[in-house]
Structure formats: C-alpha cells, structure tokens
Design a protein around this nucleic acid. Structure first.
Lengths: 245, 245
DNA sequence: CAACCAAAGTTATATGACAAATGATATATA
DNA sequence: TATATATCATTTGTCATATAACTTTGGTTG
C-alpha cells in the first residue's frame, strides 16, 4: 500500500498545501515587490532567466506570472517583458494574505475596516428592511439565544446574523465584502485561538448586543443600528483580547 | 512602418486589451459559475476536454484555471480534477470586475460601501491625527480651493484628500481598500461620463463639504467627521446623478 | 535628419512527453 | 465474507521544445 491511505481518509483537506511549485515563485516575487526590492515600473528578469534562477520550467514561471497579474502586482507586455505594476495600473482585486492576519495589530486593522462596512450595512438594513426580513433575522437571533453550545452553533449563528444584515441592506457589494471579511477573520481568529483562549461569558454578553442590533433594525432606526453594531464589534474585539478594555 | 507606431504613442495604455486567450477562458468559466450553471463542488471538464471545447492548447486552459484559482473560484486537486470552490474554501481575494461597475445600481452599491469605509476612516483620523497630519491635510485643502481647473487638478486633489484621511487613520487595510475603491470608482465614473456629463457647480459645493470634514478632523471629533464625510459622499452621489435629490 | 528596414529579444501559444497523485477495480489473504 | 493489497486508467503538475506575434533597438538609406 501507499502507507498513506489511512491518513488521507482522516484529513481530506491538508492544513497546508505547498504543492504547486508556482506557489513558491509567486510568494518570492510578491515579497520582492512588497518589500520594495523592485520598484513600480521596473522590468523583471525574462521568463527564461527566472526559469533558470529558480530552477523550474518556464511553464511554472508563466503560471506564477499569470497569477501575479490577476493580483494586480505585475503586468506583462508581449514582446517587451513583465513589469511591476504602477499605481493606477488596474488592481481589480483586493487581497489579504497570511501576512495581513498573522500579527495582532493587523487583525485590529481588519476589525476596524469591518466596523465601517458593517455599521453601514446595519444602517441600510434598518432603512430598507421588510416585514419578512425582520422575522428571518429574529429566527437567527433565537438560535443565538439558545445558550447551549457556546462554540460550533454559536459562531455559526453569529456569522449568519451578520450575513443576514448584509443581505437585508440590499447591497450586493457590501454582502460580498462582509462574506470576504468574515472568512478572513474566522481563519485568523481560529489561528490566534492557539495562543490565548479566553471566551468565557462569551455568549452571554454578546447576546444582549445582538438584541440591541436587532431592535434597532426592527424599529427602523439607521443611526441606532449603526451605533449598536459598532458597540458590538468593539466589544467583540476586547473579548478577543485585541483591545484593552 | 507598422502603421501603428503613431497611434501607440498617443495611447500607451489601450482601453481594452483582449489579447491573452486565457482571458476569454477565464471569463467564460467564471460566468458559468456566477450564473449558477455549475454548482459549488461540481467537477469541471478535464483540461483536455476544455482544451478541445475551446479549441486552444492545454497551456492556455491551465493558465486560465490557475488564475481562477487565485480568485478563489475553483480549486484543483492533482490526480482528481478541477472543482468549483465551495463556501469556505479560501477566497483570499475580493474582486470587482466590469460587470460590477457597468450598471448604475451597482455603482450606487459601491458608493455605499465606500461611505461605510471612509466614514470609519474619518472617525479614526479625527481620533488619531497629529499636528503634522492636520497641516498636511490643510495643504491639500488649499489645492482644492484654488478654483482654477475644475477637472484634472480638481479630481486629483480630491482623491488625494480622501487618501490622506485614510493615511491619517493609521490603518493600512483601510488605506489599501480606499485605494482600491477609488480606482474602481474612478474608472467606472469615467466610463459613465460618456452618457450624462453634469458637473456644473461641482467644485463650489464640494469645497464647503471638504472644509467641514477637515474641521472635524482638526477639532478631533470622530462623530462629526463621520457625519461630514457621509454627507459629502451622499452629495457626491447626487452630483453624479446616482441619487435623485 | 527623418523614415524605413531588419534582426534580436521577449512574451504568447502549441505540442508532446513524463511524473505524481487519485479513484476505482480486481485480487489475494485471513 | 471481509479486509487489505495490488494494479490500472484517469487527471493534474511539470518539463522540454518549437513556433507565432509583438516590441525594441540599431542601422541604413533617401
């Protein structure tokens, strides 16, 4: 046997997958750019040169360059070369990599960004909610109150609550961005939990905050909804130890 | 001559560049996914099959798949196939394509997202500004007041003003996202201008709004800064015809 | 000096091959 | 029979080579 079939069954999704060679190339070049070792407008070595330098085939280099291009880090011009993207070149994608979530200060920054987006979402939701919106949100609130499982169900209902608010705001871009941020943060927080796992009294306090948000939206008071979700997210930060109370 | 050197000098950056074949493949597959013609978890045709279907080499298919992967739309498993990404698979990038900016309603949605982010940026800036921050911001305000050029200088100073506020907020993620949104919006607005170009009295009213934002930050009043920039951006929307006054 | 031309250099695409991993089927073994 | 084990076809990952399309540079020529 291949001595790994059993292990493969246990974890269908490997924690880290450093398979593809092009991943390493992407990382190396991106680091060079972000560290300022190459400047916007500079030309990178030719694909052939990179191929020799990294000791991989040109195919791998091309895939790496292609991916760096979709990230808006470089642009390639046929017949000329590959250039580091200049400001205003067309970064149509907003990316958050591991470097953005591994430090605590970066996590706080992402949280502040989230506060801005979600407070607007709550305000819009309060202004645009329909009767059925309110009832569906109340249903999720019920799942949150069931103080049974503090984890699993708890966090699942929590993200559902925030997501539903974004849906009620009737703004697809906000919904997409809330989804994006919630994924990035969930991953980062899960990783950070390894260090200090303080989540006592979590659901208790958080529930009251959720009720406040719900009531503001039910009433249809945008400003109050904004304030309520802001308070909730600030409290969430302190609970995670990102903010000293 | 190649009959294009003159034209090439005029526009170094072609408006649209449908060169790379893989672009078409990326678009086609992404459309299929976003339109729901294939569901999360589904397996795509093999690279060989796609190669035959689109009548391109497998190289092109591979580059397209590679790029779709960095966008978080698909995941590939060696020896198995390429699958449509399931929720929670790892979309580390947030993307806005042409489809997100071509409709007016989508533009309004992006503006609302911007209001959320920038109002938070303004509040943080008011809380964290230093003396030198205030003076640098005042300098940009000066450039805005110089009622000379309504365009060119005007919009350049305008984006600089908003960007400086994001810098003062001391939040790199917010700064990056403001940059991202300002680029996307600038491009979209430039395109929309073709239809109705109403920008009379633009700089006049906007200048007063900018002053209000500046004074709130100078005073150090987060809530007032938030309100001021929100009002400014709402007004900007009406000036662009995105909102009926 | 300007316009044109040619050649070298570079990215884009095509083709064919092999390696590595997967999934399913068949086979052996207790 | 049930459970490993082995085998094999399928599929993605990588390599190597060749050609097309395009850019840039330099020289040539009028």
């Amino acid at each position: 046997m291949t001595r790994r079939t059993a292990a493969a069954k246990i974890r269908a999704k490997p924690i880290i997958r450093p398979n593809r060679l092009s991943d390493r190339i992407v990382e190396a070049i991106r680091d060079d750019v972000e560290a300022g070792r190459v400047s916007p407008g500079d030309r990178l070595p030719t694909e052939a040169a990179l191929s020799a330098a990294f000791d991989v085939s040109r195919t791998v280099i091309r895939e790496a360059v292609s991916r760096l291009q979709t990230e808006g880090i470089v642009v390639s011009r046929r017949g000329s070369g590959v250039y580091v993207a200049k400001a205003g070149d067309a970064p149509r994608t907003f990316r958050m990599g591991p470097a953005d979530t591994e430090e605590m200060v970066s996590l706080r920054e992402i949280f502040e960004l989230r506060i801005g987006v979600e407070s607007e979402a709550a305000a819009l939701a309060a202004a645009r909610r329909s009767r059925s919106d309110v009832s569906s949100l109340r249903k999720i609130l019920g799942r949150l109150s069931a103080g049974g499982r503090p984890l699993e169900i708890g966090v699942e209902a929590d993200v559902a609550f925030h997501r539903r608010i974004a849906e009620i705001s009737q703004n697809r871009q906000i919904l997409r961005f809330v989804d994006f941020l919630s994924f990035v943060l969930a991953e980062a927080i899960r990783a950070a939990r390894a260090n200090s796992a303080k989540q006592e009294g979590w659901s208790g306090m958080a529930y009251g905050e959720h009720v406040a948000i719900f009531e503001a939206i039910e009433t249809g008071d945008p400003e109050q909804a904004r304030q309520a979700i802001r308070q909730h997210l600030i409290q969430a930060q302190t609970r995670l130890g990102l903010l000293q109370s």
